[in-house]
Amino acid sequence: MNIVVVATALFSVGLYGVLTRRDLIAVLASVEVMLGGASVLLVGLARTIDMPATQLPGGVESVGVLIVVLAAAEAAVALAVVIAAARALSTSRVDEMTEVGG
């Protein structure tokens, strides 16, 4: 049960960061924290609960690797968008990016 509380706490901290941080890159880092927390929750649950679905040898690691790959792709694209947006709008703060288009 400890892993559930800790992992969900990590996810919640990341969620708070996404909601309150003003800088785009800080928001991105908080999203990574959320992803990490969710991933640890999944892996921890899979490793401590005895169900037929979790008995598959190597299953947890395979899914974990796929999650990591997903997160890496998402981080790369998000960073490209952040850099392009910050350059185009000459700012990196979320509350100053209020225009769309142009």
Binding site: A29, E32, A76, R87
Partner: peptide
Amino acid sequence: LPFLATVQVFVYVGGVLVLILFGIMLV
């Protein structure tokens, strides 16, 4: 899960974190 741990270090710390640092420096 040693394989997953090593992949996490390789991809996340050696890749995503470096990307974020680059983003910080460029922005």
